[in-house]
Design a binder for these strands. Structure first.
Lengths: 212, 212
DNA sequence: TGTACATCAGTGAACGCGCGTTCACTGATGTAC
DNA sequence: TGTACATCAGTGAACGCGCGTTCACTGATGTAC
């Protein structure tokens, strides 16, 4: 071995991490191999020493982003009393900060629609990560049988990501804020056992962050 | 005038209509000018006699699709008793038929995320059509003040389109059906005055169609 | 009514450009002795 | 310890291709007389 054992793996990880951000910002087809490599401080020629194709990187990039989201939700939940966990996640998701920083945000609103049109391998990789995210949310819904919690979680994610997409289409004015508010209320008022989660207090608990 | 007055306008309308379908199928950047013209039975050279740019056609195409959705919802509502109108729209939206035929379906799940990244002019055109769609849904939510109905409508659209995107990512198996079911239940159980809309009967009323 | 003409919707070759991918190469690194 | 060498992560020119757009043209059409 000429270079240290982890040197190449570190470079690869850096490419994936940067690409994960840029692809969320610009879409799955919105940035080329050369620019992605430049963002990682490299030139485009070396790309194929790390990945079989551009598509392979795209898969790694959204997988990385979605793993981070799942982790992030689990950590938020750990820091919150059980009955407020779902509310905390929703409140921290449906914020202007998240809306305005898609590169550090959830991959679903930015990439899902494009990935749904991709070939089956890519689409299935995305679907597998989506399953993980559903599980992570379902685990925060108390007092419900497994199957019912899973369905609730699916609807929560659908509403959150749908709201985020619409809010981004609407820009950053009053219309957009109204959409974010509508999404927050819809998810929280629909929530399970305690009829209305304590929204205000949950919002205060977690510092606004684009991370998801 | 050499050709009949409406000849060129008819051609133009045909281009817009075909493009509206193809762009919903393949995404806002998923098909080129040459192929769009071929779909309308023409060659690419004539394109700029009808539109200033590819982008101008994209705007016309999603505007057309979204106008059709608004119309479609209003017509569905007309044919349905007031308390079942929202349920009818939701049930006809969240179907496998709609999922599997994006070209004839709602433009929001296929195009919104991409348009959110487009320049302000394009994004605002989309947002304006979204407003119309929100109004059309809000009109079907009875017994609620204007502002509250509007917020409900925003959440309904967010959940419907989010569910559709996730269902398409999930393919066409059990996972996808589960997502569609979760979305239907979430919207209908959240719904306004009558706690549970009569889902089964509403479903039967309207023939499954991909149109939206 | 018939013919020469003007119009203009539509054609297809050509443009400049950016993309994903390939490949011969370079030069910093750790190893052998 | 010092030097010659082998490795291989990364470089940058080049490729074939498809894209949005331009433009000189064609030929079907309706009009003028």
């Amino acid at each position: 071995m000429r270079y240290s054992k982890e040197h190449k793996l570190e470079t690869r990880a850096r490419i994936v991490k940067k690409a994960s951000m840029r692809l969320r910002e610009r879409g799955a087809h919105g940035i080329g191999v050369a620019d992605l490599m430049k963002d990682a401080g490299l030139t485009h020629g070396g790309f194929y020493a790390h990945f079989d194709s551009r598509e392979a990187l795209v898969i790694e990039a959204f997988s990385h982003a979605m793993d981070r989201s799942t982790e992030h939700w689990r950590k938020l939940a750990e820091q919150t009393p059980p009955e407020k966990r779902l509310a905390t996640i929703v409140e921290s998701y449906l914020t202007p900060v998240h809306r305005d920083d898609p590169g550090r945000g959830c991959a679903i609103p930015t990439l899902a629609a494009e990935i749904a049109r991709e070939n089956p391998r890519t689409r299935k990789a995305f679907a597998a990560k989506l399953e993980q995210m559903i599980d992570a949310i379902a685990a925060q819904i108390p007092d419900l049988p497994r199957k019912a919690a899973r369905k609730q979680a699916m609807a929560v994610i659908a509403t959150m990501m749908g709201t985020m997409v619409l809010a981004r289409v609407a820009g950053s004015g009053g219309f957009s804020e109204e959409i974010l508010g509508a999404g927050r209320e819809a998810v929280l008022n629909r929530a399970p056992a305690p009829k209305r989660a304590a929204k205000k207090s949950a919002t205060r608990k977690v510092a606004a962050s684009a991370r998801h």
